[in-house]
Design a binder for these strands. Structure first.
Length: 158
DNA sequence: GCCAACGTTGGC
DNA sequence: GCCAACGTTGGC
């Protein structure tokens, strides 16, 4: 029996890594997550074939830029062992790594960037986890209908 | 286990 | 650059 596909929203600062970088590179390791709840989503719940909305944060305006498909399950994040990396974690060991990351592959860039204002004003998204006040998690689950609503906005002719 | 102090996120 | 909201750390 095939597992039900899950949907996610994953934040990235496009100055660091953008949907265009993903399109160019084809795949990416989602390195640098240093929050346990976000990590747990990757290690415990994300499966190959899941789809993630790529959200550009700290931009004007912020919003959803496209879609990435999860292409490899979570594995230890190499940057935690790299002393030169800003993601280095001295408390992490190779025997017992703290941080993991999934691999994603480019799926699509929306023809229309879906801004945070549009997300907030859409009735079908009023319960969306990522939009709740104070939510700073870089990875959040998205329902299938929320996902489809956002994709429809991103792909709509305007 | 509590909680104050501190650090980070991310919209504005 | 500000700051609300939240997560993490570490002393006790």
């Amino acid at each position: 029996m095939a597992m039900t596909k899950k949907y996610w929203l994953m934040k990235t600062e496009p100055d660091v890594f953008s949907i265009d970088d993903l399109k160019r590179d084809k795949t990416t390791l989602w390195e640098g997550v240093r929050n346990y709840q976000a990590r747990n989503y990757m290690t415990n719940e994300m499966k190959v074939g899941d789809l993630a909305l790529i959200y550009h944060s700290s931009t004007v305006p912020p919003g959803v830029a496209g879609i990435m498909e999860i292409s490899k399950a979570a594995a230890p994040d190499a940057t935690q062992f790299d002393k030169k990396s800003e993601y280095y974690d001295e408390k992490s060991t190779r025997e017992n790594p703290r941080w993991h990351c999934v691999q994603g592959k480019f799926s699509k860039k929306f023809s229309h960037f879906v801004t945070l204002d549009q997300l907030k004003s859409h009735p079908a998204l009023k319960n969306m986890l990522a939009l709740r006040k104070g939510n700073r998690l870089s990875i959040t689950p998205v329902t299938e209908s929320e996902f489809n609503t956002i994709v429809a906005s991103g792909e709509s002719a305007r």
